[in-house]
């Protein structure tokens, strides 16, 4: 038997939020697979090993800047393209929030694409974000698959020059260019010295 309150409650209109479709808040696995196929670290490391064969010291870094730099640019360009083609609910909501506040492109939209770039090519499940606010976006990579592959393929001497950093730096710069952000990309820590790489994007 329904109580008095229940009967009265039924007569009252009450707004209820129901999601119009079963949202996914996570990244599309299909998109991650596509990116991995194109930008898997062993592919680019093999290319680098070929180009660098027989070279020494500063030459290695110059080759690294070219090979990894181009790779990094292409990596971000493709991430930007696929990231838009495969939106998830988190991104939709982020765009809504960015429209309403007109201040979230940096750092959050950029952060999303950087996360996609790493999660699709690395073996970790979370990109560790150190700072994300209006002036700085800082993240760190502790367990780098690219660096490990580099050590295996080209030896620790070439790896200790950290040519792969050009990929990450170019990737971040391409991301900044995509939204015309005035920003510098710096390295706060390197795998060789500190045991992890830390990249900082500073708004000017």
């Amino acid at each position: 038997m329904a109580t008095k309150s229940e009967e009265e409650a039924k007569k009252t209109a009450y707004p209820l939020f129901v999601a119009p479709r079963p949202y996914s808040f996570e990244l599309s696995t299909e998109m991650l697979e596509l990116l991995r196929k194109e930008f898997d670290p062993p592919i680019i490391v093999a290319k680098f090993a070929e180009a660098v064969a027989g070279k020494k010291g500063p030459e290695i870094d110059a080759v690294g800047e070219k090979v990894f730099g181009e790779y990094g640019e292409e990596w971000m360009r493709r991430t930007l393209q696929l990231g838009e083609e495969y939106p998830d609910r988190t991104y939709e909501m982020l765009k809504e929030a960015a429209d309403q506040t007109s201040e979230l492109v940096f750092p959050l939209v950029l952060q999303r694409f950087i996360e996609i770039a790493y999660l699709s090519t690395q073996q970790f499940r979370i990109l560790s974000i150190v700072e994300n606010w209006a002036r700085r976006l800082v993240y760190k990579v502790t367990d780098c698959y690219t660096f490990k592959t580099l050590q295996d393929k080209c030896g620790s001497e070439a790896a200790s020059l950290l040519p792969c950093r050009h990929a990450c730096l170019a990737m971040c710069r391409t991301g900044c260019q995509a939204w015309n952000l005035d920003a510098t990309v710096d390295m706060d820590a390197t795998m060789v010295k500190d045991g992890y790489c830390q990249f900082a994007i500073n708004r000017i």
């Binding site: 996570e26 990244l27 991650l32 988190t90 959050l108 952060q111 999303r112 996360e115 996609i116 999660l119 499940r125 979370i126 990109l127 560790s128 974000i129 150190v130 700072e131 994300n132 606010w133 700085r136 800082v138």
Partner: peptide, 14 residues
């Protein structure tokens, strides 16, 4: 300290 605010957006499922 800005280091006490950030979070990652995505976690890949195990």
């Amino acid at each position: 300290n800005p280091k006490n605010y950030p979070r990652h957006m995505y976690t890949l499922p195990r």
